[in-house]
Simulated assay, not measured.
Amino acid sequence: MLFAVLARKAYARNLQYRGSHLLHNVVSAAFGFIYASIWSGLGSGDTALGDYGHQGMLGYIAFNQAILWVTLFTTNGLGLEQSVRSGQIAVDLMRPVHLFYQAMSREWGQVLYQLIYKFFPIYILYFFIFSLKLPTQLAVYGWTALALVMAAYISICINYLIGVAALWTTESRWFYWVNYALSMLLSGFFIPLEWLPRWLRTVSYCSPYPYLLYYPTRIYMQFEHGSVVLGALCWCIGFTCVCLVATSAVRKKLEVQGG
């Protein structure tokens, strides 16, 4: 099966850089400690932290920081911008496999790697340091896993569209950073969405970003029912259609900058 082959090769490629990725884990964990310390300071004394409370806020920050590697830190443009620059994109389009399927399959291998070598180590570290509580209902784990899969897929689709944009703009890296900035603000990473100003909260709820971090975390913490993933499913279907249309347009307009 081609999907399994491409995903396995991407996973194996990442295994060669485990030492470097260990440093990423240390830095990511350090950032999480900083955020947790800030919220601990804000939640001290008579200051309330809404439905979360002090310990709940620590859990929110810990899970958010860990799932970043699964749902948000996707390869910039799925590597398509480099393919355009080198001319490799022409070869990819000639293959008897859909371009979106190729890029998506490779990225799932990286997502699996980051789940095992980044998400689990970071969250286990936080679990013991912050004395976090685990959900007691088995269904919560199932809904959370489904929410994370859909979140990863949405992120893959967004980055695929960023990558194919290089066919028209040559340089699509700035799209990646715009997307990164919006995701940090509108996904509930820095602050739970219910605490945002009303207008910004409305913008966030109308975007796919809450399904990347906010809703998976809320499901895991049992503040949301798993049925909220239906919204993520709608975004997945919508993005799939857009990616297929974009690929069709790419086949009609191919401008190779190198090779």
Rank of each mutant, 00 (worst) to 15 (best):
S131A: 12
L161M: 06
I162L: 05
A166C: 09
V97H: 10
I116C: 11
Y113H: 09
F119T: 14
I122P: 09
L146V: 15
M94I: 11
Y117S: 02
F130K: 03
I158N: 01
E107D: 02
R106H: 14
L138Y: 08
M150N: 04
Q114E: 12
I122V: 13
A103E: 00
Q102T: 09
A103M: 02
F175P: 02
S155L: 03
V149W: 05
L167V: 10
A145V: 11
L161N: 03
P96G: 04
R95D: 06
P135I: 13
G87Q: 01
V164L: 01
W143M: 04
A166F: 06
A147Q: 03
I89R: 01
A147G: 05
K133H: 13
M104C: 09
Y101Q: 14
K118A: 14
M150P: 01
P96H: 05
L146Q: 11
S105A: 13
F120S: 10
L146G: 11
F175V: 01
M104Y: 05
E171A: 09
I116L: 13
V97A: 07
V140G: 02
G142K: 07
F190T: 05
L138H: 07
M104G: 02
L115Y: 07
A181G: 13
Y153R: 05
F119P: 14
Y123G: 11
L99F: 03
A147C: 01
F128A: 13
A181F: 04
L186C: 09
Q102V: 09
L132A: 06
A139W: 15
Q137P: 07
V140C: 07
A147L: 02
I162A: 06
V178D: 04
M94R: 08
R85Y: 07
A145G: 05
A151F: 04
M184I: 14
R95N: 12
F175M: 01
K133E: 08
V111W: 00
L185I: 15
C157S: 12
W143Q: 05
W174T: 15
M94S: 13
I124Y: 08
Y160S: 06
G163N: 06
T136C: 09
A145R: 11
Y180V: 10
L186G: 07
T169V: 15
G142D: 04
I129V: 15
V140N: 08
L112W: 09
S187Y: 06
A139T: 15
R173S: 13
G163V: 03
L182G: 07
Y117N: 04
Q88W: 00
L185M: 12
W108A: 03
Y153H: 10
Q114R: 15
V149D: 02
L99Q: 03
R95P: 11
I89S: 01
R173C: 04
R95I: 11
I122S: 12
G142P: 06
Y126C: 06
W177A: 13
A90H: 08
I89K: 02
G163Y: 00
M150Y: 08
R173H: 12
I129H: 02
Q102G: 01
Y141T: 13
A165R: 01
R95H: 15
M184S: 12
A181S: 14
L167K: 03
V91H: 14
T136P: 07
I158K: 00
Y123L: 08
R85T: 05
Q88R: 08
L138C: 11
I89E: 02
F127S: 13
A90M: 08
F130N: 04
I122E: 04
Y153A: 08
Y176V: 08
Y117F: 10
L161A: 04
F100E: 03
Y141N: 15
